[in-house]
C-alpha cells in the first residue's frame, strides 16, 4: 500500500499536458479496434460496445497522467475498467433492454451482432453481467481465476461460483436448443 502512494497526483500535475493529450490520442487510435472487439464480447452487441468504450476511454483520458503514473499497463487498466463499468452501469440498462428489445414485430436492429444467430451467443446474452464478464475474462482474455478476481475486485471463491453458475446456465440453455 505504501509503495503506491508516490504515484498519481504529482504525475497529473506535472507539465507536458499537450504531450500527454497527444499520447492519449495515440493510445486511443492504437487500442480502439481491440477494445471494440472486447466490448462486443462483454456487452453482446457492437452498439453497446462503442458506448462502453467511449465512456471508459473518456473517463480514463481525463486522468491519463494519473493512469500512466500507476505503472500499470494502461490497456489492461482500460479493459478492467470496461468490465467493471459494464457490470455496474450496464446491468440496469441491459435488464431494461431485455424487455424493450423484443417486441414481437420481427424488426432487427441494425446494431445487432453478426453473431446473433449463434446459439452460444444467444445463451451468453441471458447471463447476468458479472457472470458474463467472468466468462469473457476467462475465455476471451485467458485470465486465471486469481487474475479475474483481481480485475473485478471479488474473491476467488466468487469467481469460481460465478463461473460455475454461468457454465451451468450455458449448458442448460444449449441443451434446450
Amino acid at each position: 500500500m505504501t509503495a503506491v502512494l508516490q504515484l498519481g497526483s504529482a504525475v497529473e500535475r506535472g507539465g507536458g499536458r499537450a504531450e500527454t493529450v497527444g499520447d492519449f490520442a495515440e493510445f486511443v487510435r492504437m487500442s480502439m479496434p481491440g477494445l471494440l472487439r472486447y466490448g462486443h464480447a462483454l456487452t453482446g452487441n457492437p452498439h453497446d460496445s462503442a458506448d462502453l468504450v467511449q465512456a471508459v476511454l473518456e473517463k480514463v483520458g481525463s486522468r491519463w497522467g494519473t493512469v500512466q503514473g500507476k505503472g500499470d499497463d494502461p490497456l489492461a487498466y482500460v479493459r478492467r475498467a470496461m468490465a467493471n463499468t459494464h457490470i455496474s452501469i450496464w446491468r440496469r440498462r441491459r435488464r431494461e433492454s431485455l424487455v424493450a428489445d423484443f417486441p414481437d414485430n420481427g424488426a432487427v436492429a441494425p446494431e445487432l451482432s453478426r453473431l446473433e444467430n449463434e446459439p452460444l451467443w444467444q445463451a451468453l446474452r441471458e447471463l447476468p453481467p458479472r457472470q458474463r464478464a467472468v466468462i469473457v475474462l476467462r475465455y476471451y482474455e485467458n485470465l486465471s481465476e486469481a487474475e479475474i478476481a483481481h480485475a473485478l475486485g471479488i474473491s476467488c471463491g466468487t469467481v469460481k461460483s460465478q463461473s460455475s453458475k454461468a457454465m451451468a446456465s450455458l449448458r442448460t440453455r444449449l441443451g434446450k436448443e
Partner: peptide, 12 residues
C-alpha cells in the same frame, strides 16, 4: 463507431 477525436475531446 467511435472517433478518436470524440474520445479525446470528451476526456478534455
Amino acid at each position: 463507431p467511435v472517433a478518436v477525436e470524440a474520445v479525446v475531446s470528451g476526456a478534455r
